[in-house]
């Protein structure tokens, strides 16, 4: 039993890039293409790690610190996320705050690294990133507060193997989290990872100048972040089965993650990206859902 958290941590580290592969394959399926291999991101990472690097003359050490701090922060987040009904490797009362704030640290350094290049495109992306994050933060914490009150626990590991699966409150909170998840991971309808126009990007444009191992770290961190926030949603929605070996629950959790990836792929295939000025509306909707969830729990 005690080995479960470590196995889950390892699975997260190993399988996070897979999610992006699944999302891309789903999108390719909807577009009638064959699409890149599911393991494409692994090949990309391996290749990037073998390369040299090009740094802009404008940049300083802050630019190089961005990817490493980002990876370190998201690893801490991964260690705080419970998976498949088992507790997280690290858990204590209030770890949900630390989760939200280490992701904030990651964002801070990604943004300053982007500003370090002095490029107006990257400034633009950074500006959008902090705007959306600032508006997503209250929705995230409110949804977590609702779930925490429902579970009567201050720790993610006490909240996530949801005691009453699919109760309306948790479904609402999870709905809010899905919107936050799409926003934080720069997916459609907030940002289009496939766009090729710098003017319209958010996350992609911030890392435009990173290359080689730096870019590898960034891509891997982004995949881990997708995994972390995805595990939050899956943990809230997918029930765990009692009385079976933990491996069974792990498999259920993994199936949930794959399903989430497919859903994201479907969403990206069937919806268009919203105009930038409408993004706050979506985030306000997430906040409203979370508030509704909280009021229902409070009652």
């Amino acid at each position: 039993m005690t080995s479960a958290p470590l196995v889950h941590l390892f699975l997260g580290l190993l399988l996070a890039p897979l999610l992006l592969g699944v999302i891309n394959r789903t999108k390719a399926f909807f577009a009638g293409r064959r699409g890149p291999p599911v393991l494409q991101l692994y090949w990309d990472l391996a290749k990037l790690l073998r390369k040299g690097a090009v740094y802009s003359q404008t940049t300083t050490w802050v630019f190089q610190a961005g990817p490493v701090v980002g990876l370190a922060a998201v690893l801490a987040a991964l260690a705080l996320i419970p998976f498949g009904g088992a507790a997280a490797p690290l858990h204590f009362n209030g770890d949900l705050l630390l989760l939200a704030y280490v992701l904030g640290l990651m964002r801070f350094f990604t943004v300053v690294a982007a500003l370090d290049t002095g490029s107006s495109f990257e400034g633009m992306g950074a500006s959008r990133e902090v705007q959306f994050a600032a508006l997503a933060e209250p929705a995230l914490l409110l949804a977590l507060a609702a779930a925490a009150r429902k579970a009567g626990s201050l720790s993610l590991s006490g909240i996530l193997p949801a005691a009453v699966p699919l109760s309306p409150e948790l479904a609402l909170a999870a709905g809010a989290l899905v919107i936050v998840f799409l926003c934080e991971n720069s997916r459609v309808p907030f940002d289009d990872p496939n766009t090729h126009l710098e003017l319209t990007m958010i996350h992609e444009v911030m890392v435009l100048d990173h290359s080689g191992p730096d870019l590898a770290l960034i891509l891997y961190s982004a995949a881990l972040k997708l995994w972390v926030l995805g595990a939050l949603i899956v943990g809230m929605l997918v029930p765990t089965v009692a009385g079976v070996p933990w491996v069974a629950n792990t498999v259920i959790g993994l199936a949930g993650m794959l399903l989430l990836a497919v859903v994201v792929g479907v969403v990206e295939s069937v919806t268009a990206r919203v105009r930038l000025v409408r993004v706050p509306h979506l985030l306000a909707a997430a906040g409203a859902l979370a508030a509704l969830a909280f009021v229902l729990v409070l009652r």
Partner: peptide
């Protein structure tokens, strides 16, 4: 505006729940 409406909706919800109790 629509964001204002949503925020007011949350406020209305709180009032509604309070009235309900």
């Amino acid at each position: 505006g629509y964001i204002g409406s949503v925020l007011l909706a949350v406020a209305m919800l709180v009032v509604a729940v309070w009235l309900g109790t």
